[in-house]
Structure formats: C-alpha cells, structure tokens
Design a protein around this nucleic acid. Structure first.
Length: 348
DNA sequence: GACACGTGGGA
DNA sequence: TTCCCAAGTGT
C-alpha cells in the first residue's frame, strides 16, 4: 500500500521552499535538518500558505541554526509576529541555542533525542527524524489522523481515537523511503483526503478505504464538540511622544502573546478590570473597537490615544519612530494601531 | 487528561 | 456573521 502512495507522491508532491523533491532525493540530495525543523515548527497548527513567506524570511536572515542561536530575542519575536502561537518562537530560539551550544550546531538524528529539545513534541520529533534523516518513524498529525480514520473507518471520536490511529499509521509506515512516505501521507490529507469534500475519485488509496466503501468518508473523523468561546473586553493605551516615539511594552514570557510587543492596557476579562493608564496624558477615545478572536475567547478591545509630553511611563518604554514597525506587533496589537493611525493628528 | 495558546481563509 | 479548520506543544 505504501508503494501506491509513494508512486502518487512521485507525481503529485507539492513543491515547498523547505522540501527536497522526490526526484532530487532519489538523486542523493539530503534535506537540511535546520530547514526541516524550522518548517515543521512553523507548520504546527498553521497552514502552508501562511508559513511560506515566514520561512523565506527566517532562512534569509538566519541561514543556519547557529545564526538563529546568535539572534536577539526581540528580533526573532518581531520576525515571528503575525504567525501566532508565540510560544513556538520562544521555544524555537531556546532549541536553536541548545543545538548550537550543546550539540555543536548539528541537530540530533533520532526521534528520541529530538524529542528532548524545546518545542519538539511527538509529531515534530518523528517528522524531523523521518524527513531529514530518513528514519522509519511514524508521523501523526491532523492529516494522518483524518486519513487513518477514514482508511480504517474508525468511528471513535478524537482525541480518544489517537492511540488506535497511531497504531494504524505505524503499521503502514514502510522501511523504504520513510521521509517521502511521511510527507506523502500528509500531502494526501492536505490535497485529496481533505476535511470537507474529499476527492475520493482521484485517491490512490480509494480501493483500500473502508470509509469510502461504506460511503461514510464525509462523517470521519468524528470529533468531540467544542466549548463555546466567551467574550472578554479590555482597554489598550496608545501613547505618542512629541518626537513620534510610541509607548510599547514587551509582554511577560508566559501566557497569551508572551514575549511579544504590545500596547499597555488593562487585563482582558468579562468586564474591564480596574487599572491605571501607563502614563500621564490627555486620553481621547478614537471610537470603534478592535475585534479579535483568540483560540479560546473573543476580544473586544477599546482604545485610548494621546500625544504625551510626559517621558516617564509607569509601564513600557518609548520606541523611537524610526524603529517602530506595525508588522513587528502581534495581529491584535497591529489592528489597534491600524484603527487609530488614520485619526492621528500630525506631529507638531 | 484538560486546558492554554494565534491567525487567516473558506463555507 | 459565525463556525470550522491547519504539518501540536507545554503545563
């Protein structure tokens, strides 16, 4: 069966900046473990379309893991801004530094030793071991879960079905070309065996698929219902100094948007918590609000804007105008800037 | 095991 | 508008 999938992959493999094509791999080209690792971390819970440009940016600025290890934290967080799940960026840097300083700049080549590194869990350890080092490890991501659930008509809902799906996936993993095979199953899930409207008519595994035989592919995998998202509210303060510098703070490493730049403000809760503005100023309400949805809640963020002459904020620090780039902010904070930027009076 | 943790695109 | 979804990990 794996041969059928590999034959399909030889023809239909998607081209990606971090990927070595099946033809090149046959010709002896080896993927760069650094690029494989970087792409896999970026791809955690994130679409290929969203990752492409970030991957190109990171590899252009930091071509090797030792370059990344030497980078300043703030530069890496700013480069990651907009991609989400910011703990990944913090762990990315930790991992690069461990590899650079404790492994001589070379990635470990086994699943077990990769698993010990920050930000590398069961999926990523197996993916890097398989793709970068051609080890016969089994990757189990959302794609593989869906493909296995359909192939074997597994009706137990996720996440309870994971052990069985892992077992099914492991039994299919070949000893030959395990790296291409891992990418092939995920490509199959991403392009043929899609969550909605799977293209069974052109699937290389159609004749082996129990869900297709029973006409139940659209109903698998089953999933537990998700909890409703509550709505939280808060206030953010955008203060501009007379020289055009903006008052920003680096958020604590732990928690939401950890390690990222942001506008000082209240906490976010069901009702706006008591708080003080970060600096003395004549605050105005620009009207409107930022609406943003995080993984587990909706946020409605009210804004306050001021030109301030004060220079000693209780929180945060002024970022000079020439160093302030909205693109360095996480999306919710960039939305706040975008909303008020059109209303700003010119500097005196 | 449950929960926290982002974002943008598509139906 | 709202919901679902995408190559998961850490606590």
């Amino acid at each position: 069966m794996s041969d059928d999938l590999l034959a399909w992959y030889d023809v239909h493999a998607r081209a990606m900046p971090w990927r070595v094509s099946p033809a090149d791999r046959r010709a002896g080209v080896r993927p760069d473990p650094y690029r494989v690792w970087l792409s896999e971390v970026m791809l955690q819970q994130t679409t290929v379309a969203a990752v492409r440009d970030y991957f190109r940016k990171f590899t252009a600025i930091w071509p090797r893991v030792t370059d990344l290890a030497a980078a300043a934290d703030a530069d890496v967080m700013a480069a990651w801004a907009g991609l989400g799940y910011y703990a990944r960026a913090r762990n990315l840097l930790k991992c690069a530094r461990v590899v650079a300083h404790e492994h001589g700049g070379t990635f470990p080549d086994t699943r077990e030793r990769l698993l010990a590194l920050p930000g590398i869990g069961p999926y990523t350890a197996a993916a890097v071991a398989a793709i970068a080092f051609d080890r016969p490890e089994t990757v189990l991501d959302g794609n593989v879960e869906r493909v296995m659930a359909r192939l074997h008509a597994v009706e137990v809902p996720l996440p309870m079905a994971k052990p069985e799906l892992m077992d099914r996936a492991a039994r299919l993993t070949p000893q030959a070309r395990p790296g291409d095979y891992a990418q092939a199953v995920m490509d199959l899930g991403a392009t043929i065996c899609t969550p909605r409207g799977p293209a069974c008519g052109i699937c290389p595994w159609r004749d082996d698929c129990q869900a297709h035989a029973r006409g139940m592919q659209a109903d698998l995998p089953r999933k537990l219902p998700k909890a409703a998202k509550p709505t939280r509210v808060g206030i953010a303060y955008l203060a501009r100094r007379r020289d055009g510098a903006w008052l920003l703070e680096t958020r604590p490493d732990k928690g939401l948007l950890g390690g990222m730049l942001g506008w000082p403000g209240s906490d976010w809760a069901e009702k706006v918590p008591a708080h003080d503005p970060p600096i003395d100023a004549d605050w105005r309400d620009p009207g409107g609000e930022v609406r943003h949805t995080f993984t587990h809640f909706h946020l409605r963020l009210s804004l306050r804007v001021a030109d301030t002459t004060e220079n000693e904020p209780a929180r945060g620090a002024f970022v000079p105008a020439h160093r302030f780039r909205p693109a360095d902010l996480p999306t919710v904070m960039r939305k706040a800037y975008d909303l008020i930027s059109a209303t700003l009076p010119p500097l005196e």
